[in-house]
Structures are given as C-alpha cells and as structure tokens.
Design a binder for these strands. Structure first.
Lengths: 185, 185
DNA sequence: AAAATGACCAAAAACCCATATCGGTCAATC
DNA sequence: GATTGACCGATATGGGTTTTTGGTCATTTT
C-alpha cells in the first residue's frame, strides 16, 4: 500500500509539474490528484523541492536512456556523437517537463527554476563527457580533453540546430556533421 | 546654437541610458540634464525610441571602429579574426550602455530591450561577416559561407570566453586560437 | 516667424493593503 | 504506525488609488 501511494504521488507531481511548471504546482493539488492528504506527501518527501528532484532525476534517467539507445557499437565516433546529440535535443524538445521549465524560466525568471535548468545542462554535459571518455578509453584520440570537447560540441550543436534556425533556413545535415567532426579530431 | 542643443540632448541621453537603462531614463530628466525644455527634445527626435536609436547607432559605430582598429594588414586571417573578436567582446564588456541593457533585459525582461539586444547581435554579426567577405575577396578560401562562418565563430568565441569561465578556469589563449582556426579552414 | 517652453493630457506604472493562497506542521483520528 | 486536514506564518495576488511618464501644443521668447 505504501509503495503504491508513493508512486501515485510521484505520478501526480510529474503530471502537474509538466503541465503547470514548478511554481504553479501546489502541494494541495498534487495531493488531490494522488488521492492522499497533503500531510502524506511529507512522509515520503521533505519538501516540494525534494519531490521535484525525484521527478527530475527520473526524467534525466530517461534522457540518458534515449541518448544511450541512439549509440551504435559499430558506428564511427563522430556518428555516435551526432546521433546522441540529436537524441538529446529531440528529448528536450518533446518532454513536457523540460519544455515547461524553459517557459517558466523565460516568463517568470525565477532564480530557483533557472538554477534547475543549469543543473539539467550540467547533467547533459556530464553524460556527453562520459560518452567521449568511453571512446577515448578505446584508444580514440581527440583534439581536446573531454570536459572542453563536451562543452564545445554541445554548445555548437545547439547553436546550429536551435539558434540558427531562429533566423535562417535549416542547415543541411552534412554541414552539421562536418562541423561536429572537425571539432573532434 | 541649434546644433549645440541637439548635441547636449544626445549627450545627456547617452549618459542617462547608460546609467539607468532604457526604461528608467525619462524624457524629463534628459531635458533637465541637457538644460532644455522637454518639448525641445521633440523638435529633434520624434520619440524616446528615436532618441535611443541615435545613441545606439553611435555606440555601434564606435564598436565597429574598435574592431577595425584591431585588424592588421600584415596579419594572418585567423589572427585578425581573433583580434577582432577580442576587441568586440572587450567593447561589450566595457561600454556602460551595452552592460546596462544586458542587465535590464535580465532583470525586467522587457520585450523592447530584448529586441534591441538581438539587433545589436545582428549588427555585430554583420560586421564580422563583412570582415570575412573582405578576406574572401582577397582569394582566401573558407570552409563555409560568410553568414554561417560569422555565426559559428562568434558563438563559439563567446561560449569559450564568457560561458566557459562561468564554471571553469579560463582557457589558454592558444587553445582558443586553435579552435577558431580549425573553424575557418 | 522660427525656436523654445512648460502646463497639460491620456495612458501606463507604482503604490497600498486587505485578502487569498501557499508550503509545511502536528494533534487528532483511523 | 500510518494518515489526515485544520491550522500557521509567510508570501502572493487583486484592484482601487495615486504618481509618473511620453508626448502635445498654445503661448512666450528670441
């Protein structure tokens, strides 16, 4: 019974955070959706932040899995990197929670949510870094160390996909591939 | 006399916009600092926006001059590009008007100021583009067309200088040079 | 008559403050 | 021992009132 309740709370919170964002989600409404009393939430989570963290951790785990699934054993390094970046951006653009947090940061500019988003970026960068390091362990040489390379590649990729398209027609896939490739080796 | 007055208004406005930002400068205070009546401002400029535009145009002209001054006839393309980028970033970081507009956009998030800032970015990109095109006209080959190359280089440079340093120790100059270089050829 | 002024106006912003809502607690209940 | 929901202090909200602002224009100054 206990586990079932905790799960219901998490699901209710996930729905609400995704639909209304962090600030506009109230503990009372989460409790109502989860069909528990407000106090019950606090037997599983000490605060709204903690509850949110649980949801975010799950989401990031899903993101890592999506990224992982894009990798192919037999593919070349730069192909895998690009497939992974594509998966990450696709995930970011299709998961309501991250979309909503982005909107919330832009509209309300709350320091709290802004910090959460930098945390998300940090987690993504760490994942990219780990993929690079796995590849390096296999003996593949890179131009820069994994931290810098992850940063450089991720930022460039986002710039080319999201920012460029705000004012231009999308770039051909080969162009993007070529740019990413030239940063690795 | 007329010219003198117009100049006084521009100077007063420049000071005020730089010190207090767009929203917080009032036409009344500009008039007071310039020692003219409020109505007089409107014989030279039709609106606060127009007045501001004049100031911004001057600032951008100064920026272009600073960037221009960093170029050296005998230097290699990538050296000039980097010198120019350095000059632009340095200008951005040291000119009160642009700093203040950045703060204003972050704090108040006014659509008006945000639009001004994208306009500034556009002007900077156009300038970089023109420098690239001058070089291309001399017969130097580049990996990408000038629009994409300007975008790529500028974004990467900002990422490496400003954003990287938010969480890491500054990168050695040679590393930055190398990265920029590899994007050009 | 051309240039300059500042009182004036509608519109927008800032200010107040009573009221509602929120995250979190804990004595009572199951 | 688990669960509840009335309750609390702190913060957010709504909206009526006042102040400030960009812009105008009849009047004055040059």
């Amino acid at each position: 019974m206990i586990i079932d309740k905790k799960e219901r709370i998490i699901e209710a919170a996930a729905t609400s955070f995704s639909q209304f964002g962090f600030k506009a989600t109230t503990m009372a409404s989460v409790a109502k959706i989860a069909r528990v009393a407000k106090g019950t939430i606090y037997t599983f989570f000490d605060s709204k932040e903690t509850l949110f963290s649980t949801i975010l951790d799950r989401t990031m785990k899903n993101l890592r899995q999506s990224a992982e699934a894009a990798l192919q054993e037999e593919a070349a390094f730069h192909e895998n990197i690009q497939a992974m970046l594509g998966a990450i951006l696709n995930f970011r653009e299709n998961h309501q929670l991250l979309i909503k947090l982005g909107q919330e940061a832009k509209e309300l500019g709350t320091a709290e949510v802004l910090e959460i988003l930098t945390q998300v970026e940090r987690m993504i960068l760490d994942y990219i870094k780990s993929v690079i390091e796995t590849e390096q362990a296999k003996g593949i040489s890179t131009k820069h160390d994994s931290e810098l390379l992850a940063f450089l590649i991720y930022r460039t990729y986002i710039a080319l996909i999201s920012d460029w398209e705000r004012q231009h027609t999308p770039l051909p896939k080969e162009t993007i591939t070529e740019i990413i490739k030239s940063q690795i080796h």
